[in-house]
């Protein structure tokens, strides 16, 4: 049968759910071992953070889409958590191979890392359900939005929900794509569009941590860099 937007969306949703069916709502044995190998075991903080962010997410999803859809928000959050654990494990395996270390205590106790990774997983889930549209309000990229309630929860909505700096979200995108080779072409394209939006606009808004980093880089680098203006 000919491919229609509805059929394509249904296929993507089925594929995502299928990929995550074997992934539990808890860290796998392998991921739990990475947690245990840390100087400071992050397990409790990870669980607590997911509880807090889960409540915030469901509440805000209900506000955006409608109070009757709170259950849908919870289902999407559950899928997002599964993807978060799956990708985290793959990232750590890849880092273990690259760095030959098994103790990722600093990274796994970094709240911003976890929030960014979870936000990226949820963005993938939301984009799979809602299609690759972007929130209205001046963004020229994306598939033109549409007028369904789904557009209210499209990027960069998740950044606002988790009070996450776009610059921190940006950091996980590439590693996320590398760590999950099962992501569809459309989802990769969606994440790439998020990346472009951040790079071109969102990261440059007032209050972005990027300005402080640039300042530090400029101050710290001035003595080291002796390149001429021409180079």
């Amino acid at each position: 049968p000919p491919q229609t937007p509805i059929r394509a969306a249904m296929t993507s949703i089925q594929q995502l759910r299928g990929d995550l069916i074997s992934t539990g709502d808890q860290p796998s044995t392998n991921l739990a071992t990475y947690f245990k190998n840390c100087t400071v075991d992050p397990t409790q903080d990870v669980v607590k953070r997911l509880e807090t962010l889960g409540q915030t997410f469901s509440q805000r999803f209900g506000q955006a889409v409608g109070p009757r859809c709170v259950i849908l928000g919870k289902q999407r959050f559950t899928l997002g958590v599964r993807l978060y654990y799956k990708v985290m494990e793959a990232m750590l395996e890849s880092e273990e191979k690259r760095l030959s270390v098994q103790n990722f205590s600093k990274l796994l106790n970094d709240s911003t890392f976890h929030t960014s990774l979870l936000a990226c997983a949820l963005e993938v889930v939301m984009a799979t359900y809602g299609g690759s549209s972007f929130k209205a309000g001046g963004y020229s990229h994306g598939g033109g939005g549409g007028d369904t309630a789904e557009t209210d929860v499209c990027f960069p909505w998740i950044l606002d929900v988790f009070s996450l700096a776009a610059f921190d979200f940006y950091k996980v995108i590439e590693s996320f794509i590398k760590a999950d080779p099962t992501l569809s072409k459309d989802i990769v394209k969606h994440l790439e569009t998020c990346e472009n939006l951040i790079m071109e606009r969102i990261a440059w808004r007032t209050g972005s941590p990027l300005f402080e980093l640039l300042k530090q880089e400029h101050e710290g680098g001035a003595a080291e860099q002796v390149e001429t203006p021409a180079s």
Partner: peptide
């Protein structure tokens, strides 16, 4: 597969991006 351009070098990963190698 997809056309995503990977910009990170082989010696860079998520640990460096969050300043904890």
């Amino acid at each position: 597969s997809h056309d995503y351009h990977f910009g990170l070098e082989d010696h860079e990963g998520i640990s460096e991006l969050f300043d904890c190698d």
